[in-house]
């Protein structure tokens, strides 16, 4: 399947269908979900209106984790099979993932203040999300630091895979650490089942964010491919001009 879509023409045909579908899907899912979440869903009996943050917080965190999994998977494919489209996908996914992770942390902090009385707690979920933000930033940093195209691609792929190994280790460590130092977890495990009228907008919002992520990644990939193709055309043209010029200078002994 990977090699099937390695062909840029096939990829472009795929984009022609997927991009509008994902774009319209994101719009039709996120906007109603937010509107329902803000104005139509009844307030939570414990948290009041504050729980409405859930419709921007949970989707951001879930899709950010998906984005890291996607980044690591694409990096693996790009490293092992030298699949250039997978690398383009990884490159496009990293900034989107970083932005979603930041959004998740930001909204989580603002939700945490009224709920737990603190903007930030060092529990496993928060800490590993924060580390994930640093993994995204490290990936972007190392990618832009290495000038050589091939080396930067492959080194960045290795960096993403190291991060994928590291994340579960950190999760485990912080779980261990916080179980030692904190009397009880502040997050309710499971919690009371929420009403269907509250959960539907949440599912819609998650699906919408996922569509938006796909849309952003595909659009960035297409831009990247266009830019590369334009660059290659310019290179070829300037090569032709140069060879013509050198042929002329050889033909003319005075020059």
């Amino acid at each position: 399947m990977f090699s099937y879509f390695a062909n840029p023409v096939r990829f472009q045909n795929l984009c022609r269908i997927l991009v509008p579908v994902l774009g319209i899907g994101a719009l039709l899912l996120i906007v109603p979900a937010w509107a329902m979440g803000l104005f139509f869903v009844p307030p939570d009996y414990q948290q009041g209106d504050t729980f409405r943050i859930i419709y921007v917080h949970v989707p951001a965190v879930i899709v950010a984790s998906l984005a890291y999994a996607f980044l690591a998977g694409a990096s693996f494919v790009s490293f092992v099979w030298r699949h250039s489209l997978a690398d383009t996908a990884a490159k496009a996914a990293a900034p989107v993932g970083a932005a979603l992770t930041f959004l998740g942390l930001f909204t989580g902090a603002l939700w945490g203040k009224p709920m737990w009385g603190a903007y930030w707690v060092w529990d496993a979920r928060l800490t590993s999300t924060l580390i994930m933000l640093f993994l995204f930033l490290g990936y972007i940093a190392i990618r832009s630091a290495i000038r050589d195209e091939v080396a930067s691609t492959r080194i960045a792929a290795i960096t993403a895979m190291i991060g994928a190994i590291n994340l579960p280790i950190i999760k485990f460590s912080v779980d261990w650490w916080s179980s030692l130092h904190q009397p009880a977890s502040l997050l309710r495990a499971g919690g009371p089942a929420i009403d269907a009228s509250m959960s539907w907008p949440l599912y819609m919002s998650i699906a919408g964010y996922a569509c938006l992520f796909g849309w952003l990644v595909l659009q960035q990939m297409q831009s990247e491919l266009d830019e590369r193709r334009a660059y290659a055309l310019v290179q070829r043209a300037s090569g032709r001009v140069a060879s013509k010029a050198s042929a002329q200078s050889k033909g003319n002994p005075d020059a």
Binding site: I131, I142, A145, I155
Partner: peptide, 26 residues
């Protein structure tokens, strides 16, 4: 990873930092 870069000290810490969390905790 950064062997072909000059003056990559800060970049190394940026990437190895998350790796140091587990040994530090334990």
């Amino acid at each position: 990873l950064t062997a072909n870069l000059r003056g990559s000290g800060l970049l190394i810490v940026l990437i190895s930092g998350p790796l140091l969390a587990a040994p530090l905790i334990f």
